[in-house]
């Protein structure tokens, strides 16, 4: 029996505020009789970059999907910016507006052009004027370095380009927190780098990020905190040097052995 590790002291190097923007306390979730999350606790400070890793089925995606309530947790508390995540639709909306999310399969809207994908959110939820929304969209398209693709449809782009569009789409909502759910898992190897580069730039700009990924190189260079999950439990959380150099838990070691072998 692995005990849920106590929340480790924040090793945030760039964290500026003491008050965490995301607080998860003993969060549990069940699918029917199957428990996917076992009392997971996690604090994320403003500007902190957290990488969550673990074998498939370990609940790491479910964990971050609870943060913007794509999944509903059944016990424990989640606070985002001090707002408690209950079924209060107003709070949910406030929380979601503050959180951008990037999916494994991009989930771009195939019937809209790249530009329309980007302007939809700002226009509908932030009530921006079309011209302003387009200006904003082009700004972020330039940031992810594909402004020339604005008029194309998502399916006309490569996987890497689509994922960068998806990142830009989230950024157009000007969120304070970005969630990445295995953003490079659906990509061909030669496209992974362009997406990771975009994410690194984003991290350097001070964005609060939680990234579920198997890219250990990314975790090493970017993360302030690496969280290892298995079977719905948080096994270990530590700064990357400590996590990779001297993992405390047996299972972390086994996992790292396996994933770093090749």
């Amino acid at each position: 029996m692995t005990q849920t590790a106590p929340t480790p002291p924040l090793a945030a190097q760039t964290a500026t505020a003491a008050e965490p923007v995301i607080q998860m306390k003993n969060v549990s979730k069940w699918y029917g009789q199957f428990q996917v999350l076992h009392e997971v606790s996690l604090d994320v400070a403003k500007g902190e970059r957290v990488v969550v890793c673990g074998p498939s089925g370990s609940g790491k995606s479910t964990l971050i999907r609870c943060i913007n309530r794509l999944e509903v947790h059944q016990s424990g508390d989640i606070f985002v910016n001090g707002l408690e995540m209950t079924d209060n639709v107003k709070n949910i909306d406030k929380i979601r507006r503050n959180i951008g999310m990037v999916f494994q399969n991009f989930n771009l809207f195939p019937h809209l052009t790249v530009l329309e994908n980007l302007t939809l959110g700002p226009m509908l939820t932030r009530q921006m004027k079309k011209s302003a929304a387009e200006e904003l969209a082009m700004h972020f398209l330039r940031k992810v370095r594909i402004p020339e693709q604005a008029q194309k449809y998502p399916l006309q782009l490569s996987g890497g380009q689509q994922q960068r569009v998806a990142i830009a789409r989230s950024l157009c909502m000007e969120p304070e927190i970005m969630l990445f759910d295995e953003p490079t898992s659906a990509l061909d190897p030669e496209m992974i780098k362009e997406v990771l580069d975009t994410m690194i730039e984003l991290a350097e700009s001070g964005m609060t990020m939680i990234v579920v990924t198997h890219e250990m190189g990314f975790a090493r260079t970017v993360a302030d905190q690496v969280v290892f999950m298995a079977e719905g439990r948080k096994i270990e959380a530590a700064p990357p040097e400590e996590f990779f150099g001297n993992p405390r838990e047996e299972r972390t070691r086994a996992f790292l052995d396996q994933i770093l072998k090749h």
Partner: peptide
């Protein structure tokens, strides 16, 4: 329509 489309829309607070 894949689930992801709904989720992406939700994450944009639509």
């Amino acid at each position: 329509i894949p689930r992801g489309q709904y989720e992406a829309a939700t994450s944009l607070s639509l």
